[in-house]
Simulated scan of single mutants.
Amino acid sequence: MDQDTGQLYGVVMITIVGGSILAAIWRAGVFGPRAFEAAPKRRGALGLFDPFVAVAVLLVGMAAVGSFVGQPPPEDQMTPRRMFITMVATQAGALPAIVYILIRAGMVVEGGLLGFGFDPRRFGAAVRYALLGTVTAIPLTMAVSAIVMFVMQQLGLDAPQIAHEALRKMTEEGWGPTRWGLIISAVVLAPIVEETIFRGMWQTALLQSKVVLTPWAAIGITSVIFTLTHVQIANLNALPALFTLSLGLGYVYERSGSLLAPMLLHAIFNGLQIIIALNLPQTPAAS
């Protein structure tokens, strides 16, 4: 069996097995149209303008931080250390937006920040749904990634195995402060920042402003926005997988009623991607 035939066989098997599992779960009502009937409801008065205000504050914060650290260089000139500085600067620049989101949610969401998704009483549900996402959304995301990569390779398009810029820089750096900093940024800071902005603000605002009437619609629109924000740092072949992952992140937020659930799932996914990237054949040996 040649390599192309083996890849095709793998993609077909992933599609059949993954599709069958997903169909069974859907029929069981876990992911179907009625999946959110018994889920906690986030009532409140977040408006559609709130995410745009948060984005404006985010851009101002990032511009302010960028004025101190400078603009990031092109990817071919980006060193691992510079990537770490860029990631931390981006997350630091997001802090004013996070503060705005928390203040605004505390004011207009029923139950304040507890109702927004920071209720410690939902910790158990958050962990359960994060684990559910780990065994469903993450394999599905990886299946989508494998299928897209195979199709792009057959079309002669560039589809690198490591499709995220930060992951590529991690593989160029030996074990030391820079690599550990990149890992902590990706596994701890990024999930907190991104889930607060996308699931917490965008998804909640879409529902509470009545722009959409169903959780799945809010999850879908939020996932499109989430995917588009990664265009500059991820290769084309990674975008469908990121969209798929985002659907899972939105789902566990709605089902659990806790922002901790998508944060945990996001952290697990990023951690797995790092483990895979650092163990690919082209990864430099650890020093």
Rank of each mutant, 00 (worst) to 15 (best):
A45K: 13
I162V: 15
V211T: 13
A267V: 02
G61Q: 04
L207V: 00
A261T: 03
L239A: 06
L207W: 01
L102R: 01
N279G: 09
V88Y: 11
L182E: 11
L46M: 15
G6Y: 08
A285V: 13
G19C: 10
L280F: 05
Y100E: 01
I98C: 02
P51Q: 09
T178A: 06
S209Y: 06
R27S: 09
Y9R: 14
W180V: 13
I183T: 13
L245H: 03
G181H: 07
G174I: 05
F68D: 01
G156Q: 05
L207H: 04
R199N: 11
I233W: 06
P120Y: 04
M170Y: 03
F269Q: 12
L182S: 11
V30N: 03
T136A: 05
M78R: 12
T227H: 06
R34I: 03
H266L: 12
L95N: 06
F31H: 03
F118A: 05
M87Q: 14
F198C: 14
T178V: 15
T222R: 03
G115A: 10
G66C: 11
P215D: 11
I98D: 00
A63Y: 09
F49Y: 12
L113P: 04
E195V: 13
G200I: 06
A286Q: 12
T15P: 01
P139E: 09
T90H: 01
F36T: 11
T229F: 14
L265Q: 07
G32F: 05
M263C: 07
I25R: 03
M201R: 03
I221V: 15
D76Q: 14
I16S: 08
P120R: 08
M78V: 11
F198D: 10
L189P: 01
S145G: 12
P177L: 13
E195I: 10
R104L: 00
I162A: 09
V57F: 04
T86Q: 11
L278E: 08
E173K: 06
V211F: 15
I221M: 12
V231Q: 11
M201T: 00
T204Y: 07
L213T: 14
V108R: 02
N279F: 10
A286L: 14
G112W: 08
A24V: 13
I138P: 03
I85C: 08
K169A: 03
G32Q: 02
F52K: 04
L182Q: 09
L46R: 01
I103W: 06
L245M: 15
A205G: 00
A277E: 05
I183C: 10
G47E: 10
M62P: 01
M170E: 10
A285W: 02
A94P: 00
I275L: 15
T244M: 15
V148S: 06
V60K: 04
A286W: 06
I16W: 05
G61S: 08
V12I: 15
V69S: 11
A186C: 04
Q71G: 02
K169E: 09
S287V: 12
Y253A: 13
A130M: 05
P191R: 10
Q7W: 11
R42A: 10
G248S: 08
V231N: 02
A23K: 09
F116V: 07
M87H: 00
T227M: 15
T214M: 09
I233A: 13
Q273D: 05
L239I: 12
I275E: 07
L259M: 08
